[in-house]
Design a protein around this nucleic acid. Sequence first.
DNA 1: ATGAAAGCGCTAACAG
DNA 2: CTGTTAGCGCTTTCAT
Lengths: 331, 331
Amino acid sequence: MRDVAALVGVSIKTVSRVVNGEPGVSRAVADKVRAAAVTVGYRPNMTASSLRRADGRSATIGVLLEDLSNPFSSALLRAVEDRARERSVLVLAGSDDDDPRQQRELLHALIVRRIDGLVVMPPGGHQDALQEERRRGLPMVVVDRLAVFADTDSVTADNRESSRKAVLHLGRHGQRRIAFLGDRDNLWTARERFEGYLEGLSELRIPLDPALVRKDVCGTEAAARATHALLEAEHPPTAVFAGQNLITVGVVSALRERGLQHRVAVIGFDDFPLADMLDPPVSVVRQDVPALGRAAADRVFARIDGEASPARHVIVPAELIARGSGEIAPS
Amino acid sequence: MRDVAALVGVSIKTVSRVVNGEPGVSRAVADKVRAAAVTVGYRPNMTASSLRRADGRSATIGVLLEDLSNPFSSALLRAVEDRARERSVLVLAGSDDDDPRQQRELLHALIVRRIDGLVVMPPGGHQDALQEERRRGLPMVVVDRLAVFADTDSVTADNRESSRKAVLHLGRHGQRRIAFLGDRDNLWTARERFEGYLEGLSELRIPLDPALVRKDVCGTEAAARATHALLEAEHPPTAVFAGQNLITVGVVSALRERGLQHRVAVIGFDDFPLADMLDPPVSVVRQDVPALGRAAADRVFARIDGEASPARHVIVPAELIARGSGEIAPS
DNA sequence: ATGAAAGCGCTAACAG
DNA sequence: CTGTTAGCGCTTTCAT
């Protein structure tokens, strides 16, 4: 910038005005400045400008998810990124693997880079670091799961209600022995979906059979193992409600191995690619992931823009997609 | 930082020393500084420090891909991110949708934020903006595809060779009418895979039948339509080599609609989730995506660390996974 | 319409 | 061991 000013023979402030499109520069000078900027290869330095600027914005937000390569997370990231791009905001993305230590470090790395706001999937354990930054005024929205602390915007699916409906759907197809496989029970979503399962059972007047419940099932492999165990038990389930996308895949995979995919009904929470191309096609509760991402982005930008109202809790409805696996009658 | 210094009654530089773990501060003072930092709620400002620092590093790299929600891209991002995290480097991620304009804007946004390096999937059209930044010295590695310009590190799969092998594999199972469906032909990968297809045919002494080639197929829907068209033609193919993950899904979906999934052989380039759970399981050429991401990260960090050798071109071998769909004999 | 001076938060270089 | 001075690239404020 100094070089540009020197080349044109104006003050550095005049260059600054041209670069930022501020008024108070004559056409002639402005053109000369722009030409000089090209010849010296000038590149604005946003970190310097945001350091001095009144609002101090970095035009960058953080997105902290459990695993960026999970289809749910990557779809969410993409939706947030699209909204951010409309505002010329960039996204610093990180995976915390639900490890509180990793989350702490990533959070710190974001903070020292002065992000304007944060979209975060809170981890399963304690969330002290997150809460601390929230308390200090970092614009924040939790997505997918609620945080353990309050007073923070959230965007979630209607986990409980749609889980209840999934169980009722199984019940309407004659199912009475409906198993539940849930993710780690320290996750808000896992607990909500289990609550929905309980509500559904109760509405169907089916007593809870603890032998049909598997919590803390983590990933595809574990889900397959849990399914095998359930099916080998004395009174095996005739239907399964799978509480997460990887779990659903594990369940389906185990059923196929046993040739039971057309005998045992399955409904999974969260849609996944190719669910419609399996045999039978897998019925799921589909969360509108792009809508979750857009809503999360909208919330965080509203806060960044200074919205001071009490925390809002956006609930995005999920939808039951009947494709076949959930409509099998008990044998 | 000033507040901390004032509270302890030392100079600002002493605080800087403590914060950065530099030597030359007595235990006693250092402890007092740390305590004061907590009470005033001090947060280091990396943008300010990197502005002044000799190396000027932002400890941030850019990752520019076509679509962060594509499973290939999100796996790649994750692998790069993992490597970056080991170095306490954060990742600014963006999707350009293969739109040169969007890429230009994202690139500019990254540049003004002073990223230390860039991992990028070059877009299909012209890459002038990218080349310009490269020429100006931005550490850069192109991934998945080669750039149209030279002198830049690249990390790609052995597209041509593994495509050739896939075609030979079909040939060994008796196939003679092998169709090719490729992505947009301005993409390096699409052209390489087509070359591999040609080499395979030639080795099998099968003359090229242009009626069996569909290029510029973009996305699942288009691939399904193209497949239907091929199958309705006078001399339909008995096998298909699908040049990209979404295309493979489209092909498989079209075959299923026609009940031909056990009659027409399919090999897809690039693995995808659940390929092994379809009926028949889909044979694919699997790229080692995490390895691609790691290699790309390693290259860019080597350049950031000052490696000045000529451009390196890392080629990651891909592997043919025979699952069933590629081993069908012609009917 | 333009510029000079001050300073954002921090570190380099050099004193003491 | 500790402090002072200067200045990174830019914007603010105020003057001309």
